[in-house]
Computed example of a mutant assay.
Amino acid sequence: MESWFTKVDQTASLIQEELEVSYLEAVYLTGVNLFEGVILQEEILHNEVLSKRLKKEYESFDLAHMSKEELRKGYQLAILKGMKEATQAHHQMTPDAVSLFVSYLVSKMTSGKKVLSILDPAVGTANLLTALFNHLPGKEVTGFGIEVDDLLVKLALSNANLQEHQIEFFNQDALADLFIDPVDLVVCDLPVGYYPDDINSQKFQLKSNSGHSLAHHLFIEQSFRYTKPGGNLIFLVPNSMFEGDQAKALHDFIKEHGVIQGLLQLPTTMFKKKEHAKSIFILQKKGPDVKLPKQALLAELPTFSNKQAMEGMIQRIDQWFATEFEGQV
C-alpha cells in the first residue's frame, strides 16, 4: 500500500509541476492514466522526457496484484495530502476507522440480501462508499454518489474505477431532483451547515421558516425520498443536531417517516474540538414489514484503538442485531 501511495504521489507531483495544476487535480489525472493504461494529457505527450518517465513509472506497477482495500487506502493517502493544501472547508474525508465501523454495521444489516443498492448523497471522494463495497463480499452491489464539487467527484470516479466498483456519480446539488431509483441503503457523512438555496429548500418539509435551512436536516429528508420502504439509512451526524430550534421538527419528521434503530456516539477523542463530535445515526424507512425495535441500540463507542473495549462493544452490537434485526432485511 505504501509503495502504491508513493507511485501515485510521485507521478502526481510530476504532472502537477508540468501542467501547473493543484496536487489534487494531478492525483485525479494520474489515477485516470493508471486506470486507462495510457497517458491522456496531450501537453505531457509533447514533453518526450516526462512522458517516457511517467510511462516507465506506470508500467512498473501492477494494479492487478493489489487488493481493492490497498488501492483505496493508498489513493486516500494521496488525496489527504492534497487536502492539506486545499482551503475549502468541505474537503474533509470520513476517518478510516469510522468507514470500517460503518462497513461492519452495513454487513450486519444486509446479511440477508444478495443484491444491494447504496446511495451516498454527499459522496466526496467516495472513500466511505468504496470502503463499504470492499467489505460486502458475496453481494452484487451497485452504488450511486452525488457530489456538487467537480474536483471531488472526479477523484471519486477515479477512486472507484481503480477499485473496479460499479458506481454511478452525479456532479450536482444533492438536494435537487436526483435521477436515480430508490435504493436499499443510504449512507452519508452529512454536510453540516446552512443550505444557501432558499427557493429549492421550500419543497422540503424540514425547511426553515426564516433564513437559510439546515443542510444536514434537508439531506436526511432527501435521503428518505430516495430510500425504498423498509430500506436503511446510516448517517454521521453532529451531536448538536439533537439540540436547538429545529430539533423538534426533525424528530417529528423521522417519527412520521421512519424508525430509529440506534445512535452510536463516536469517541470525542477523534475530534479536535468537542463541538465537532459526531454520532452514527441508524434509521429505517417505514414499510409494511418494519417493526419498532424493542430497544434501540444506544451506546458511546470506546476509542477504536482500545481493542478489548471494542471487542466487548462488537459483541453487544452483534447480540442486538441477532435479537432486533434478524429477518428484517
Rank of each mutant, 00 (worst) to 15 (best):
G262A: 11
H212G: 00
K55L: 13
N134M: 06
L116A: 12
Q315C: 03
S22D: 11
V27F: 03
K56M: 08
E300W: 13
M109C: 03
T269W: 02
S201Y: 02
V8N: 12
V192T: 09
L162E: 06
F271I: 11
V192G: 06
S103V: 08
G112W: 02
W4F: 15
D184G: 00
G82W: 01
L24M: 05
T11L: 12
A277D: 14
V148Y: 01
K291S: 14
K286P: 10
M93A: 03
F144H: 07
L34G: 00
I146K: 04
S22Y: 03
E48Y: 01
H212L: 13
N161A: 13
T94D: 10
T323K: 11
L77W: 08
V259A: 07
L297K: 05
N232Y: 02
P121A: 11
L250Q: 06
H90P: 00
G244L: 05
N171L: 08
G327L: 07
K81A: 02
E48T: 12
N161D: 10
F169K: 10
F235P: 01
D198T: 06
T30D: 07
G82T: 02
A299F: 11
L128Q: 03
F325M: 15
L206R: 08
P302T: 14
Q10P: 00
K307D: 15
S3Q: 13
M241A: 15
E140M: 11
Q284Y: 05
T269C: 10
V187D: 00
G258V: 09
S13W: 01
L100Q: 15
